[in-house]
């Protein structure tokens, strides 16, 4: 599956990563060689093979519905880039 520059731009947008125009070709080259590498998989017949998401055959454990976390706003917001009146600030969003 050959990629082109537009694909790279589209993927970068989905991933919300800015890529300078001058770097697109390099990423295109990298991604192409990685995809060539992974294309080996297509040669394997995996019909009827159940995908494996978790290495252990375990099931989800359940947590009791009890409050264990108290207000830690002050501490948690110390590492925030921009906070006012307890709210995290981001550039204005229009719905």
């Amino acid at each position: 599956m050959a990629l082109d520059r537009q694909d790279v731009e589209k993927i970068a947008h989905l991933a919300r990563i800015n890529i300078d125009k001058k770097d697109i070709n390099e990423y295109l080259g990298n991604l192409t060689s990685i995809l060539d590498l992974v294309d080996q998989m297509q040669r394997v017949d995996t019909q009827n093979v159940e995908p494996l998401s978790h290495p252990l055959d375990a099931i989800q454990r359940l947590r009791a519905d009890d409050i264990t976390e108290s207000n830690q706003r002050e501490q948690l917001q110390q590492v925030a880039p921009a906070v006012e009146e307890g709210l995290f600030l981001v550039p204005k969003v229009i719905d």
Binding site: E84, F88, V90, K92, V93, D95
Partner: peptide
């Protein structure tokens, strides 16, 4: 929740 009206050029986020 996104609070769009509270600040002039910013949106406030309440999680």
């Amino acid at each position: 929740k996104s609070l769009h009206e509270k600040f002039p050029s910013m949106t406030g986020i309440d999680l």
